[in-house]
Design a protein around this nucleic acid. Structure first.
Lengths: 181, 181
DNA sequence: GGGATATGTGGACAGTGTCAACAACTATGC
DNA sequence: GCATAGTTGTTGACACTGTCCACATATCCC
């Protein structure tokens, strides 16, 4: 805990994000929740975007842990695949605001190094856990990540559930296709 | 042209979105570009979100047209699939701000009816153009849309291109998997 | 100790979405 | 033909936001 105040600010922002959505995350509110003034964040982050990038990086490690906890206990490849999809979508459904922040921070050109590092860690972990570390399969890995992300967004949109088709149906399609040799 | 001012406001907002990104779309700027005052949009839209929803719906029809123009000339199923993926990703890459707006407006709970209708149109067109109108394949159609969206986001993020893997590589994986019987 | 540096604070400012009150134009009843 | 109601547009004002600035305090190095 070299810098306790900094992580306390991140935590405050994350709390606000969860309870009130992205609109509720204002620098004034973050400072107040952390027991500081409205300008306090500027002593630890360049601006609001930098704070949000730090929150996003923090959330990414949560997501990675959630996925790893679901995938690692599985033994077969198909079971691992399914566990990956399910846990990924599950997180997006249960924490939509956080998930959304993570991907909007990925989208921005000129990303924050903190985010960059978190992405790299997740990718290499995935590579080992799912694909077995094959080197030719970068495209397959990207396809996996893209599929999961796509399903997560479609499901959180909620429209498809409404039309009688759930996440598991789509995941079934994805898994049965990817699991074939 | 029952309501010229309304569509002129939408067009102004779209221009600002293209030229300056979402941050440049302020109600004052939209009004000014349309030759009106800052409060003019409120006579045609409930609030800023409603205006953005209308812009999103407008963009969705553009996307649908772009995709249809690429897919319909193809004859084989695999060619149609590939054309779909490519044109979809292409639009996202060439018009990232618009694409982003469209999906953020889909994400919001309690969507605008205008957006809702545009989504329905796209889905049924897709169903006919790609899947041949099969009724059992709702899940496959959703998987297709999810995959394309996922690839588009990963590619616009730009990170994977940087790591020596392009959109076409991922699309190849998707198509070869989906095209099998 | 004393100076430099890091951390925290309140004042002020421009920009934003939005509410309210008012003006002008349009159409509709008689 | 004209008053009335409704639509469309404008300006004034307000609360809120991110951020710049100048100032206080605390901490560390010599």
């Amino acid at each position: 805990m070299i810098d306790g105040t900094r992580s306390r600010l991140i935590e405050s922002a994350l709390t606000l994000l969860r309870e009130q959505g992205l609109e509720g995350v204002t620098l004034r509110a973050v400072g107040e929740l952390a027991g500081l003034s409205r300008m306090a964040p500027y002593r630890h982050f360049a601006d609001k975007k930098a704070l949000l990038a730090a929150v996003a990086a923090r959330v990414m490690t949560d997501i990675a842990a959630h996925i790893a906890a679901a995938v690692l206990p599985q033994s077969g490849q198909e079971e691992r695949l399914r566990a990956f999809y399910r846990s990924y979508v599950e997180y997006a459904v249960e924490h939509p605001e956080e998930y959304r922040l993570v991907f909007s921070s990925m989208f921005v050109a000129g990303r924050h190094p903190e985010v960059e590092q978190a992405i790299d860690e997740i990718m290499s972990a995935l590579s080992v856990d799912i694909a077995g570390g094959g080197r030719r399969d970068k495209a397959a890995l990207a396809a996996l990540l893209a599929s999961a992300h796509g399903v997560a967004e479609l499901v959180t949109v909620g429209d498809f559930a409404h039309k009688g088709i759930g996440a598991d149906d789509i995941i079934d399609v994805m898994v049965s296709r990817a699991a074939r040799p």
